[in-house]
């Protein structure tokens, strides 16, 4: 009898795992394990932060519109706790001076140069082995199949994968657990985040306001403005 009961999963576990979709959002948020550092975003995500052991897809219309700012507080928290992270095939050089101002400890940051094809392979390896807690990757040609492989690898290795893609990939389906599109300031309005998909929860209909940039404290000199 006891043996027959064994595979039964407790309802609480199942619900907190977010594998079962429930019609209306639950009242109490679980304690977030990987908070994003952005209160508005944490509030709408079912995990209260980044999904663990999963792939997160960030869709950008252009480089340099705040995609790193979205992650820097998480990366700072991870590296300061001694966890290693990997950055695979970044579009520009990560400037240590700027990252360190955000609190990232570069002693735990590993960088990889790779061709687009190798970048996918390297991302999968880094996610799968489980020695890195976060993997940031810029795969140039990632299709649905490649992303599915990355999602499985992240699940196996228990790592957080962040994939940066162009905004026009928004229309294509994706196996990522979380998809966020970043809209930059334009004639339509100020910068905002749109959560396109979040597994186990309802994606909020309304976009979230997103202040792309930290306030700058350096003064503007009168000469320069002229």
């Amino acid at each position: 009898m006891a043996a027959a009961l064994k595979p039964v999963v407790a309802l609480d576990t199942l619900l907190s795992d977010r594998r079962v979709w429930r019609g209306r959002p639950t009242a109490a948020l679980p304690t977030p394990t990987q908070p994003t550092g952005h209160a508005a975003l944490d509030a709408v995500l079912p995990w209260g932060g980044w999904p663990e052991a999963s792939l997160t897809e960030l869709l950008l219309p252009a480089d340099g519109i705040g995609e790193l700012r979205l992650l820097l507080s998480t990366l700072a928290r991870l590296t300061q706790a001694g966890h290693d992270i990997a950055i695979i095939a970044p579009p520009y050089l990560p400037y240590p001076a700027g990252w360190r101002q955000a609190g990232v400890d570069f002693a735990h940051v590993h960088l990889l140069d790779a061709t687009p094809r190798d970048a996918l392979w390297a991302s999968e390896q880094c996610l799968r082995t489980g020695c890195l807690s976060a993997v940031l990757s810029w795969p140039m040609q990632a299709d649905d199949r490649a992303l599915r492989r990355l999602q499985v690898a992240a699940d196996t290795g228990g790592a957080m994968g962040f994939v940066f893609r162009e905004a026009r990939a928004e229309r294509n389906p994706s196996p990522a657990a979380l998809r966020i599109a970043i809209d930059n300031t334009s004639s339509d309005g100020p910068a905002q985040l749109r959560v396109l998909k979040c597994r186990g929860g309802i994606a909020p209909v309304r976009p979230l306001p997103f202040s792309i940039h930290a306030p700058i404290h350096a003064p503007v000199h009168a000469v320069a403005a002229a």
């Binding site: 970044p90 579009p91 990560p94 400037y95 700027g98 990252w99 700058i216």
Partner: peptide, 8 residues
């Protein structure tokens, strides 16, 4: 202030 991306 220092940027996070640097152009080579």
């Amino acid at each position: 202030p220092r940027p996070t991306w640097l152009l080579q």
